[in-house]
């Protein structure tokens, strides 16, 4: 097959050289923030006379930045909990019912992913002004939760698609009650999907910028909100330090997600060969 591959279609060397050039374009931005974050200058630049951790030190002692990080972390954790609970139950219900109506519900749940945040932001801004949730943690959590639930519904639905319904039948016919079946048979089998969904929901909330521009501002000042203001106003190298920190958090989460995905693939493979 490999020899066949050599003869296929276009010239391999040219295609791969082009592909890796584009990949370089993809990862360059992630790479440049590292040297910039350790610059010895006071302004945004490459290090000139040596490396310096001054911007990380500034970040770690700035009450504003730490406050925003803490703010974002709290909001993301609570949001994730709501998304996981609501999204998982919803996906299981839709999967088990699989009627026209429940399929409709599941399609409806996908809409927040494609509808631009700006459209939603206007509506939620108005609603929150009316009910007094503007600039509150509860308000931001709610808005992030409803836009994050779809990610959990998608990932859990994906693992349910690989789940053999006969396992559930077996549990029921062996005398397990409905809730026992859900707890002991369905949940352990969809765990990788649930965790992937949790990671997506967390990142969604942690990164979300557009909605918070509208519904938060003074008392709730999330990390993306502060970065947005800083990038637009003074382009301090401290943002590079924040960026490096964010990239490390992302890499850690990406590693977890890839492991989960591999496990999910393995699980469905063993099932299909069994």
């Amino acid at each position: 097959m490999e020899q066949l591959g050599q003869r296929l279609g276009l010239k391999r060397g040219v295609v791969f050289a082009a592909a890796w050039t584009i990949v370089l374009f993809l990862i360059t931005p992630a790479l440049v923030v590292f040297p910039v974050s350790v610059t010895d200058q006071r302004f945004l630049s490459m290090p000139e006379h040596g490396l310096s951790m001054q911007h990380f030190a500034k970040l770690m002692t700035s009450e504003d930045w730490l406050g925003s990080i803490w703010n974002s972390l709290q909001i993301a954790v609570v949001t994730t909990a709501i998304c996981v609970a609501g999204g998982t139950l919803c996906a299981v219900g839709c999967w088990r019912l699989s009627s026209r109506l429940s399929e409709g519900v599941r399609t409806l749940m996908l809409l927040p992913i494609v509808i631009p945040s700006i459209v939603y932001s206007l509506g939620i801004y108005r609603l929150f002004v009316d009910i007094g949730l503007i600039d509150t943690v509860a308000g931001v959590v709610l808005a992030h939760a409803v836009t994050g639930i779809p990610y959990v519904v998608i990932t859990v639905s994906a693992s349910l698609a690989n789940f053999d319904p006969r396992l559930e039948q077996a549990a029921r016919s062996l005398g397990a009650s409905l809730s026992q079946t859900v707890r002991r048979v369905i949940v352990p089998n969809i765990m990788p999907g649930v965790l992937s969904g949790a990671i997506f929901a967390f990142i969604h909330s942690w990164d979300e910028t557009v909605i918070v521009l509208f519904i938060a501002g003074r008392s709730v000042y999330t990390l993306p909100r502060r970065m947005w203001a800083d990038i637009n106003e003074n382009l301090d190298p401290i943002i590079a330090a924040v960026a490096v920190m964010l990239i490390f958090v992302t890499l850690a989460l990406l590693a977890v997600e890839l492991t989960l995905r591999a496990r999910r693939a393995r699980m469905s493979q063993t099932r299909s060969t069994a």
Partner: peptide, 21 residues
């Protein structure tokens, strides 16, 4: 991996990096 990596990096970080460049 290289295709997924930028997908996961905050849109603000990416925009900031491009401004820097």
């Amino acid at each position: 991996f290289c295709v997924l990596l930028p997908l996961w990096i905050s849109v603000l970080v990416r925009a900031f990096a491009w401004v820097t460049l």
